[in-house]
Write a protein that binds this DNA or RNA. Structure first.
Length: 228
DNA sequence: CCAGACGTTGTT
DNA sequence: GTCTGG
DNA sequence: CCAGACGTTGTT
DNA sequence: GTCTGG
């Protein structure tokens, strides 16, 4: 699945994702966790692409009291069209979440061992997401999003049975297009990202604590005997 | 019809 | 908004 | 995702 | 065990 990710590089991010003027602060992030603000790319109908901050963990616009409702951080690609929470968002609330890597954990007894998965060449990639705006009692809108998950490619399957839906660069515009993809096309867009572009290595247990945020988190850690 | 919920993950 | 349960 | 808390009352 | 917070 996808419960933590990174944006280790911010130089060139607006250009890479077709955003002319990015109004949100772009800082390197080494441990992005649910509930945190994250830069998200949208393409409003009849306008240009935008990059805005949204909170990770979806609060549907119809939510009455989000305090005590689930805020899904992931949505299964296989069942998007049959989930009442996600289906209404498929037509006009698709978004891209820029990233340079993500973490997956392997449970080992009482502890969880983190692995870092990223592009071999260090490129950005775009996670496929859905967002919504919820009107708070104060009248302000809270924008939130969820990351779509899909089957793992063989590389990620060594660590987990799910992985985030990473879009092929040539498909990113289609995902944002106001012409909603058919179910068939959605399935294709959200298929597992090819493993040959990715690599993975074990990292420090320091990643487990979302308070830890420094660049050393993504360094290789020769800690043990678990899978590469 | 209306009322009420609406998620994923991993673990047992 | 849409689906499920009663 | 993992880590950490998990309560109420009355008083300052 | 389960919920909340980051």
């Amino acid at each position: 699945m996808c419960g933590r990710f990174t944006i280790t590089v911010t130089i060139g991010l607006p250009e890479r994702f077709g955003v002319a003027h990015c109004k949100v602060p772009l800082l390197p992030r080494y441990n992005i966790a649910p509930s945190q603000p994250v830069p998200v790319i949208t393409h409003p109908f009849g306008s240009i692409r935008e990059c805005q901050e949204m909170t990770w963990g979806l609060i549907p616009s119809t939510s009455k009291d989000p305090t005590h409702s689930p805020r899904p951080i992931n949505a299964r690609a296989e069942t998007l069209h049959e989930r009442s929470t996600f289906r209404p968002l498929l037509s006009s609330r698709r978004c891209l979440i820029p990233a340079t890597g993500f973490y997956e954990w392997v449970r080992s007894g009482k502890s969880s061992i983190p692995y870092y998965i990223h592009c071999k060449n260090g490129d950005f990639f775009a996670l496929a997401g859905l967002w919504d705006a919820w009107k708070a009692p104060d009248g302000l809108f809270r924008k939130t999003f969820t990351i779509i998950t899909t089957r793992p490619n063989p590389l990620v399957a060594r660590y987990h049975d799910r992985m985030p839906a990473i879009l092929l660069p040539e498909n990113e515009a289609r995902w944002l297009d106001f012409m909603t993809p058919s179910n068939k096309e959605l399935k294709e867009l959200l298929s597992p990202y090819p493993e040959e572009y990715l690599t993975a290595h074990r990292v420090s247990l320091a990643v487990n604590d979302p308070m830890h945020e420094d660049a050393s988190l993504i360094k290789r850690d020769e800690g043990g005997v678990l899978p590469v």
